[in-house]
Design a protein around this nucleic acid. Sequence first.
DNA 1: CGCAAAAACTAATATAATTAGTATTATAAC
DNA 2: GTTATAATACTAATTATATTAGTTTTTGCG
Lengths: 201, 201
Amino acid sequence: MARRPGLTEDVVVNAAIELVNTQGVEQLTVAALAQKLAVRPPSLYNHVRGLDGLRQAMVLRGLRALTAKMQTAVMGRAGFEALVSLAQAYRAFAAEQPGLYALTLRSNENADPEAQAAGQAAIDVVLAVLHGYGLEGDAALHATRVLRSALHGFVSLEMAGGFALPLSLDESFDQLLCTLDCGLRNGFGQNANPDSSPLQQ
Amino acid sequence: MARRPGLTEDVVVNAAIELVNTQGVEQLTVAALAQKLAVRPPSLYNHVRGLDGLRQAMVLRGLRALTAKMQTAVMGRAGFEALVSLAQAYRAFAAEQPGLYALTLRSNENADPEAQAAGQAAIDVVLAVLHGYGLEGDAALHATRVLRSALHGFVSLEMAGGFALPLSLDESFDQLLCTLDCGLRNGFGQNANPDSSPLQQ
DNA sequence: CGCAAAAACTAATATAATTAGTATTATAAC
DNA sequence: GTTATAATACTAATTATATTAGTTTTTGCG
């Protein structure tokens, strides 16, 4: 039932992903995408619900690809080794697909159920790694947030060109991981220095 | 030499900041801003170099305001207390001016010299705090990246609605700070567990 | 009082997303 | 094999956007 170019949602979404990865998230326009696919802009609306629907579909694929990459990374590993492997996979994903990563980690506010499930799957991988640190329950959930914050923060600053100095990024990333490891092994779930802590004002 | 509404660059930029803080970064349009100022869109071009120039000016103010807030926060404090105060100021800034924060931490790639200087001033505050941890030289610079990553990651995930679970955000933030404190006090500058580290492959 | 410059305006252009409606073509039913 | 149907790409039109050009008005200063 297709006509000349034989578009499908898959083809459109993949082309869009390629476009944001090479040109940046801002350059994702219906016009540019249509040109890339040798088609007139309105034709895309047969396969995708406008720019918003397109972005949603891209986010879903991004989350799933990231989760798959992380799952592979932690297979057969535990403790610090698993943490490092997970983190490297995370950072590598952002480096390989910068546009898709930026889009994926933009906003989870209006996420549809599918996207929320995909997000949960990603979190489950992190939780599995934290299990190896002996963390369970609320402590593990807090630790998940800490881990995600650190990884997302580093990666997004790196991508945004926020680290200007001529200083090894790999080394900084290693230090970040050592810091996380240190925090996860010591004193997670209770305050590190309960007495003098300014947290208990 | 002004005419009726008496616009100035300050008035325009401040209105734009108010707009992004209340409506979100995506809603910053020349049309919306002009309407807010009771003026026709082209009039804004007498005070601001289009949307790009406007954003640049906003970023500059954002960086300076954030720096000022952080400087106040660390005055007279040291060590963990300074770290906590700095972090709380950082997070509070993002909460008070979400749109401006999002805009500010977007991209430092094409930053003009003024913005770069403002960014450096912010980093200097962090360096001062790290001085209290006995960190100097490259170790301090790596630590700055670690700190910025963690803070920016947490804050931007929080703002994007990335933390969905019904679990105290304040507590997660405290855990993040304890983790950072732990990493900064132990083993920064050298590997925490040199022997079995997967980092030395 | 008049002059010059700043500032706001109208009008026009260009690009973008999106919708409506039309034509074509491939698949499936007969 | 022919025909009906539905998918799909198209043209045309609408709306919203940023931006530039050129005009008019006002205001501060000599």
